[in-house]
Design a protein around this nucleic acid. Structure first.
Lengths: 390, 390
DNA sequence: CCCATATATTTTCATTGCGTCAAAAAAATG
DNA sequence: CATTTTTTTGACGCAATGAAAATATATGGG
């Protein structure tokens, strides 16, 4: 796996269909010997050698230490997604602060940071990010040319079928209805992807090996400031005709409380607790056990409705309940939704999806943001397609 | 567009990616001159000439009569999907009778037939079909080698994630949980596709030019014996992880009346009308106007719920209400569902889907069955992929 | 230790599909 | 008949892939 021609910056990376297939197989099945890759992908061994060489030069894959031997003959050397070939950045904005992660091509988090950010202006956001990245390049050797791009997760839906122009919640009013991709790319010199926060979370949940290995399609809920959904169909993020697939917040009428993190906080406050932010939740669980119980019961009934309809339409392999809530809360929610659904699905011979809780927690959104470039360039069919509207 | 080498039977037809792109463009945009095709598909004019030659030899496309001229120079000759290059068969089974259509590559119905069929046995079904096709070959020159395949629409959901093994309604009990594709292919010597009836209907609705030209994703309801749904995502039939996407019958609890054709019949009978089959509906519309009105009101409220959730999850470009009901009934249903949904979607800046009634009526299912082979071989990405369960 | 055997990987060579270019042919108008 | 535009054809190159031969690296047995 030598080093020949100079490698172009990753921001211009474009893989062929076959190359993408190899990468995707490795991502799903983990380190694999070339023979088995060839077999599984129905690609000639010679072709496969060339493919792995190319991907090696690009820094996308590397050879793993050989397996302990079991048979005679030349031993297999598994190849795997490379850990240090390049990076992707994810960012998202919260009320009053911003979050940032850098991941490698395996999807592992190399660096994470969150800092106060009161200003709404997206240009200031981009400049702050840029600063941070330059500092990181100096401190830890994250070379600029090796960044695939930046994914930004935004809490808001697409307007006019344009994924880059969104109607956003009030605390980031300056982000409303402007061409976010262009604005951010104007400041940062790397490709930018804009994604809905729940959709990003869905991508992150899907990229967990235990999910990806088992399923091709999943449904994800993310309970945070509101409640959102995301949907992976045939291993790809499903956008919908106007880029608003998964906007399940709409399913819960505005005049009733929604099953969201904010709503749990409000419920706790009403019960006399001091709950200002999601970070407080963990600490209140013991003292306000009953309030949590009641809320979980109500929220799970609401979620079960949305799960039920989502499953009927999409027939996913799994449903993941994710969000900025304590893990035990998510787990209880998942269990109760599961119970509700089992009742609804009873007497039905077809396979039904597992309903499970996320283990990523609130990190799902920003991680998913970082995975967006990765997924688009290295994973899904299109590449380039998802970044530009129409 | 000459004729050179002997052409292989269509049952083994396999198009390259580029060939498929050309065919798909023609299907969506109608007859198109080669210059414009080359431009739209970003394919070199020389390459395009070669592609159209190949597709011409295969009998897939043909030259249309030239357009009236507007400018100097050699006039453009539009090419179009050929009408007589080959055929596809669709079949479906109803309580007591079966339905059959033969379509050409444009999707036009060349022949349709329905005949009593009391027996449940799928082998007898296949033999009856085979007989009928042989007779047609003799009478009307439908040569066997020019059949792409047979699509069979079945009212039942897939068991165990196998699209060819289904849990079916009681009046075709012998079809239950057997490998339908194998059984039918054992009798008929052509490739067989098995599809859910509502999914087939969705395909048929999608292939109407006014839909296909405008949208990439749609949601379809089919009201017949029960209620079913089908879903086109990114111009492809979406199957779900276990091949049961669109099973929206589940959304309506079993102990309540569902918004189906059967339910309308039952409602009419309860009101004293003599309504034995869907064919009677048309005649009762005047005499039982009030009953229809009331039913439509109730059914549209039920449907609106399912539409609402489907739209929230999938964000389709359009929703089509189809079924074995009189057109005016479907139209009224669509209008009322639309009204309901507009209420639910109000205050939302994103584009919302049109909700419209089908003009295909009960024919949608069998037509969609016939389109299944066409779609899989000539249209969607895979080709071959959808016919075999993983 | 040396050699036959087994298996994985790499190299070499041929084929195919498609893009480019340039030129010719076709079919109209003025 | 000159001009214009589309379509066809031929020559050629490149990139991707497959088939077969060569090479690498192990085991196992004398």
């Amino acid at each position: 796996m030598g080093r020949g021609m100079p490698v172009p910056p990753h921001s211009q990376l474009q893989l062929s269909d076959t190359q993408r297939r190899v990468v995707q197989h490795l991502r799903i099945h983990g380190p694999t010997a070339r023979v088995h890759l060839a077999q599984a992908l129905d690609i000639n061994a010679a072709t496969l050698t060339r493919l792995t060489q190319q991907l090696g030069v690009l820094g996308l894959i590397e050879e793993n230490p050989a397996n302990p031997l079991t048979v005679r003959g030349r031993p297999t050397i598994p190849v795997a997604i490379a850990g240090h070939g390049g990076w992707s950045v994810g960012a998202t904005i919260h009320p009053g602060w911003m979050e940032l992660v850098v991941i490698d091509f395996r999807g592992e988090i190399l660096f994470e940071d969150s800092r106060p950010f009161a200003q709404g202006d997206p240009k200031v956001f981009a400049r702050t990010l840029d600063e941070r990245l330059r500092a990181l390049a100096a401190e830890r050797g994250f070379m600029r040319g090796r960044f695939l791009g930046l994914g930004v997760a935004v809490a808001g839906y697409a307007i006019g079928g344009d994924r880059n122009r969104r109607s956003v919640v009030d605390w980031i009013a300056p982000w409303n209805d402007i061409p976010l991709q262009d604005v951010l790319e104007g400041v940062l010199d790397m490709p930018v992807w804009i994604e809905n926060d729940a959709a990003a979370a869905a991508l992150a949940e899907y990229y967990r090996p235990e999910i990806m290995r088992r399923h091709r399609s999943i449904l994800v809920f993310f309970l945070g400031h509101g409640v959102g959904g995301g949907l992976i169909a045939e291993r790809d993020l499903f956008a919908g005709e106007f880029h608003n697939a998964g906007e399940v917040g709409r399913l819960f009428p505005g005049d009733m409380p929604r099953p969201s993190g904010i709503d749990l906080l409000a419920t706790l406050r009403k019960a006399g607790a001091r709950a200002d932010s999601m970070a407080d939740l963990e600490g209140l669980m013991e003292s306000h056990h009953g309030v949590f119980e009641a809320w979980i019961e109500r929220a799970s009934a609401q979620l079960a409705m949305a799960v039920h309809s989502g499953v009927a339409w999409l027939d996913p392999g799994a449903v993941v309940i994710s969000g900025a809530l304590p893990k035990t809360v998510l787990a209880q929610l998942a269990a109760q939704v599961d119970a509700h659904c089992n009742r609804l699905f009873s007497g039905y011979q077809a396979p039904v999806p597992r309903i499970c809780a996320s283990s990523l927690g609130s990190k799902a959104v920003v991680l998913g943001a970082a995975l967006t470039p990765l997924h688009d360039v290295l994973g899904s069919r299109g590449g380039e397609s998802a970044r530009h509207s129409i």
